[in-house]
Each structure stands twice: as C-alpha cells, then as structure tokens.
C-alpha cells in the first residue's frame, strides 16, 4: 500500500458537528483539569486529555480533520495552561502525522488494548518533542527533572483514555469500523 493510500484510505465516520463536539469536550476537560488541579493535588501530574482526544479523532476521521482537531486542541491546552503558545499544537500535529498511517490497523483494537500505545505516545511526545522544544526555548533549571511527571501524566492519560473514547463514541454519531 502506498504512503498516500495509507493516509487517505480511512473510512469517513465523522459527520456534521462531531468534530466541534470533540473540540468542545477537549476545552471542557482542560478547564476542569486546571480548576481542579490543586484540589486533587494533581498540579504538574495531570493527564493530557488533549492527547487522548487527538488520537480518538485520528482513529475516526480523515487526516485533515485530525490535523485541525490536533491544532485546535493544542491551542486550547497552551492557552488555558499558560505554557508557550504553539508547544502542544506542534506536538499534537506531529503525533497525528506520525500515528495516522497506522490507524486503519489500530482501529480494530478496543480502547482498553490501545492503552499501552497511548502511554508510549504520551511519554514519547513529552520526551522527544516537548523536551527539545523547552531545551531550545530555555530549560527551567539544571536541577529540573520532569521524568516523574511525564510517567505519571502518561500513565493517567492511558488509564483514562478508554473512558474518553467510549464517552466520545456516545457523544458523536460514530460507530467503530467493524460494528
């Protein structure tokens, strides 16, 4: 199968306002997380909801929709979270671009079995994309070690992703490819 076919062969299952619903769900999750971070003691260790949502859209929609969703969700995460604008946008667009050729095969798996993949994508994006970005823009301190936060954040994202996928399946009008 050629590269172009890999990128375009997915069934189109998003309809109408489904993408808008997903982006709004992402906005709500990020706002709730930032409001509750200190109450739940999760400041710095919270799950990356936007990554789970981006992977969900990449599994369900065409490439251009997935890229748009990644861009919008990344903007929301950066704007609400207070970090550098563009950091999560760049990361999520790259993740989508990397993940998209494999989604046809991965769409056969249930959300539970996708958990290890989401953990790897989360950890990998933080280690290999965000860390070099921060190294270029200004590493916080020579004593700063974000690895524990990366592991906890990626683990929480992977654990919560199945719930997010199932909830979004009900929210939108999507059905899994084999249903």
């Amino acid at each position: 199968m050629s590269l172009s076919t890999l990128y375009t062969a997915a069934p189109i299952v998003f309809k109408g306002w489904d993408l808008v619903k997903v982006v709004l769900a992402g906005l709500l999750l990020v706002i709730i997380q930032s409001s509750m971070a200190a109450f739940a003691g999760l400041s710095g260790y919270g799950p990356e909801w936007v990554l789970a949502l981006t992977i969900y859209v990449a599994l369900r929609a065409e490439l251009w929709l997935a890229i748009l969703a990644a861009f919008a969700l990344g903007f929301i995460r950066d704007a609400v979270g207070g970090g550098f604008l563009g950091m999560h946008q760049f990361t999520l667009v790259l993740i989508t671009w990397f993940f998209y050729p494999f989604r046809a095969r991965l769409n056969f798996f249930s959300p539970l079995t996708l958990m290890p993949l989401i953990f790897i994508l989360g950890l990998g994006s933080q280690l290999f994309i965000m860390t070099p970005i921060m190294a270029v823009l200004g590493w916080p301190s020579h004593t700063f070690n974000p690895l524990p936060a990366f592991f906890v954040s990626s683990s929480l994202t992977a654990l919560l992703a199945p719930i997010v996928f199932i909830a979004l399946d009900r929210l939108t009008r999507n059905m899994r490819q084999n249903d």
Partner: peptide
C-alpha cells in the same frame, strides 16, 4: 485555576 503541566 492552576497550570496543570510540570513546566510552569
């Protein structure tokens, strides 16, 4: 609200 990430 608090910044949920570890960088800031």
């Amino acid at each position: 609200a608090w910044d949920p990430g570890p960088w800031f």
